[in-house]
C-alpha cells in the first residue's frame, strides 16, 4: 500500500546508490556527511551531535534531557532527514515523532490491526514506531504501559501486536526526551528502562555566539539552507556499523580499564548501585564509534574519559546527599585512566 509519506519519499529513491561501505574511510565519510548536515541544521550543539552520531553508529538509543525549545526536536528531525530510506518497500519511514501524553495507549505507538470491510480481513496498520529515527517526546509523561511497549521495541528491535511479533528495522534509533521541569503528572522512567538508553545527555544552554548565530541564520534555515548537503542511506549506516565493529581496535588494556572503572563505581561508598556489566558491553561499540569520529582506528583513553559520564550517568544510583554524578564518575575514573595511560609506556 502506498501512503502519503511514501509518496513524498519516493523522490529520494531516485538518488544514485552509493558504493557500499567497506572500510574506515567509507565509514568516516558517513560520519562526516551526517555531521555536516546536522551541524548546519542545529547550531551550537556540536557535542550532542557527536554523541548522537556515536549512538547511531553503535546501535544505541539516546535520552535527552532539556528544557523546551532547546532544539531537541529539530535535532531528531534533522537526523531523520539526513538518512535516505533506500528500502522503500518495507513500510518503514525515516522519521516519526511520538508526543507522549498520559492518555496515550500502547497501540498508538506500536500500531494496530484494523478490519477492512472491503476485504473482510484484518490488516496491520503500523504505528509511528516503525521508522528509522523515532523521536519519543516527553517520554516520562506517559503511563508505564506505553513505556513498556517502547521498552520491548528498543531492546529487541521488535514489537508484539495482537500476539504477533513484528520486526523493526535494523536502523531503529530512538531519541527520547524528558523535561526536567514540572515533574507533576509524570511517570519517571524505571531504571530498567533507563538502562535501554545508551546515553543520557543533559543539554546545556548553548553559547552566546551560537545563539546569536541561530537568530541570524533562522531565515536561511527556513529557506532550506543545507538541505542540499549530501545525505547518507540507511544501508550505509548499517554497513558503517559493521565496519566499525570489526575494524576499530580495542586494546586489552582498554577493556581492563572499563572493568576497573566498573569496579571503582561498585566500590565507591557514594554509589548505591554500580555500573552493570551490560553497560560495559554496550560501551564497547560506543567507544569504537567515538574513535571513528576522532579519525582513529583504535580506542584510546580519551574515548573512555569522554563517554563514561554519558553512559554511566543515568545508570548509577547515588546515595542520598552526594555530589553530582559527573563528579563521582570523574573521581572513579582517575585511577583506571591513570593505569591505562601508564600502560602505554610499559613494554
Amino acid at each position: 500500500m502506498t501512503t502519503e509519506s511514501d509518496f513524498i519519499q519516493s523522490e529520494h529513491i531516485t538518488h544514485t546508490p552509493a558504493p557500499p561501505i567497506t572500510d574506515l574511510n567509507g565509514a568516516y565519510g558517513v560520519v562526516q556527511r551526517m555531521r555536516n548536515r546536522l551541524q548546519m541544521a542545529v547550531r551550537g550543539r556540536d557535542e550532542v551531535i557527536e554523541l548522537m552520531i556515536v549512538a547511531l553508529l553503535s546501535d544505541g538509543h539516546m535520552l535527552l534531557e532539556d528544557y523546551p525549545g532547546s532544539g531537541k526536536t529539530t535535532l531528531a528531525k534533522s537526523l531523520g532527514d539526513c538518512i535516505i530510506d533506500d528500502k522503500p518497500d518495507d513500510d518503514i519511514v525515516t522519521f516519526r515523532r511520538i508526543q507522549f501524553t498520559p492518555d496515550l495507549l500502547p497501540s498508538d505507538v506500536t500500531g494496530t490491526t484494523i478490519f477492512d470491510p472491503n476485504t473482510n480481513r484484518f490488516f496491520f496498520r503500523a504505528g509511528p514506531i516503525f521508522a528509522h529515527v523515532v523521536l519519543a517526546d516527553e517520554i516520562n509523561r506517559t503511563s508505564p504501559k506505553v513505556q513498556s511497549a517502547m521498552l520491548e521495541a528498543m531492546a529487541e528491535k521488535q514489537t508484539t501486536i495482537d500476539n504477533r511479533t513484528r520486526r523493526l528495522d535494523d536502523l531503529f534509533f530512538v531519541i527520547a526526551t524528558q523535561n526536567p521541569l514540572d515533574l507533576a503528572g509524570t511517570f519517571p522512567l524505571p531504571s530498567a528502562q533507563l538502562d535501554r538508553f545508551l546515553f543520557k545527555v543533559k543539554m546545556k544552554h548553548i553559547q552566546r555566539e551560537a545563539e546569536l548565530e541561530i537568530l541570524a541564520s533562522a531565515r536561511a534555515r527556513k529557506a532550506g539552507a543545507g538541505s542540499d548537503l549530501p545525505r547518507v542511506t540507511r544501508t550505509e549506516v548499517i554497513d558503517a556499523r559493521g565496519v566499525i565493529e570489526s575494524t576499530i581496535h580495542v586494546a586489552p588494556e582498554v577493556r581492563e580499564c572499563l572493568v576497573d572503572l566498573a569496579n571503582a563505581t561498585r566500590a565507591d561508598q557514594r554509589i548505591l548501585q554500580g555500573a552493570s556489566t551490560r553497560s560495559l558491553v554496550l560501551m564497547i561499540p560506543a567507544l569504537q564509534a567515538r574513535a571513528l569520529t576522532r579519525v582513529r582506528d583504535y580506542v584510546s583513553a580519551e574515548d573512555v574519559e569522554y563517554l563514561a559520564p554519558y553512559i554511566f550517568g543515568h545508570r548509577l544510583e547515588l546515595a542520598p546527599g552526594t555530589d553530582s554524578v559527573e563528579t563521582v564518575i570523574r573521581e572513579c575514573m582517575a585511577r583506571p585512566l591513570e593505569r591505562l595511560a601508564r600502560a602505554s609506556l610499559r613494554r
Binding site: 584510546s300 583513553a301 580519551e302 582517575a334 585511577r335 585512566l337 595511560a341 602505554s344 609506556l345 610499559r346
Partner: peptide
Amino acid sequence: RVTYRKALDLLAEAGLAREFGETRE
C-alpha cells in the same frame, strides 16, 4: 615507547608533567 618517553622527560624538565588521571591526549 622510548622516543615518546624522552619527549616526556624533556617536558618534565620544563616543568610540564601529566597529572594523575589525566589522559595522554
